[in-house]
């Protein structure tokens, strides 16, 4: 394909997505973190990542996601949309899953962050990682670290009684039914469509726990 052709198709994609996006603004590029040498101010922040204390000196604009990927080189956590719309950047902070792309690193002083690298290792997989392998809970694998962090946190949320949209009775304890798992995982998009297998992997882990 010629360069010119690519330009045109790319532009028309951007135009149509700007008009149709319900969750507006996917695909708009924004400022990448400045190289450290250009940083206008060196803001200090420290938090624990996968059990290890880390001290940073950062531009205030740097997100938790970029601090993990670009500063600690923990590239397991992925950047999909950078706008809270896909869940690829999901990490667990103080026991709760969040989108690391919509959080400034500076907001996390003293926090405990767990990324996919902290859940398990190739030699010693976390049960959720093993279940994803067993059930083929992925195809390309790009969304997978976020899916697994989210899935681990979802089972904990069910255990703690956090309610969901599909729960029939708000005052009863939720259970890990297929409908519950799917609803609670809706913040993690998978372009390969591995959703059914992801829900089965989660059900395996949930049952093993009981």
């Amino acid at each position: 394909m010629e360069e010119g052709e690519y330009e045109i198709s790319r532009r028309s994609v951007l135009v149509s997505s700007a008009v149709t996006a319900t969750l507006a603004a996917a695909g708009v590029s924004e400022a990448q973190p400045l190289p450290k040498a250009l940083a206008p101010a060196d803001h200090k922040v420290s938090f624990v990542v996968n059990g290890k204390g880390q001290a940073f000196s950062l531009d205030p604009r740097i997100t938790l996601l970029d601090a993990l990927r670009e500063h600690l080189h923990l590239t397991g956590t992925k950047k999909g949309c950078d706008h809270g719309q896909c869940g690829a950047c999901t990490v667990i902070v103080n026991g709760e899953r969040i989108n690391s792309c919509l959080s400034l690193a500076l907001q996390h002083e003293g926090d405990e962050v767990t990324t996919i690298e902290g859940l398990g290792t190739p030699e010693k997989l976390h049960p959720m990682q093993a279940a994803f392998v067993k059930h083929d809970g992925y195809q390309c694998g790009y969304c997978t670290p976020g899916q697994i962090c989210s899935a681990v946190a979802v089972l904990d949320e069910i255990k703690r009684g956090v309610p969901s949209h599909v729960q029939a009775e708000l005052t009863r304890a939720p259970t890990p039914t297929n409908a519950e798992l799917r609803e609670r995982m809706s913040g993690n998009i998978c372009r390969c469509g591995a959703y059914s297998n992801i829900a089965e992997a989660m059900a395996d882990v949930a049952e093993a726990r009981v």
């Binding site: 709760e96 899953r97 969040i98 989108n99 959080s103 949320e157 309610p163 729960q167 809706s186 913040g187």
Partner: peptide
């Protein structure tokens, strides 16, 4: 509340 956003977003 649980009809809005996602689990990750509602935590923050």
């Amino acid at each position: 509340i649980v009809a809005g956003a996602s689990g990750q977003l509602r935590n923050k």
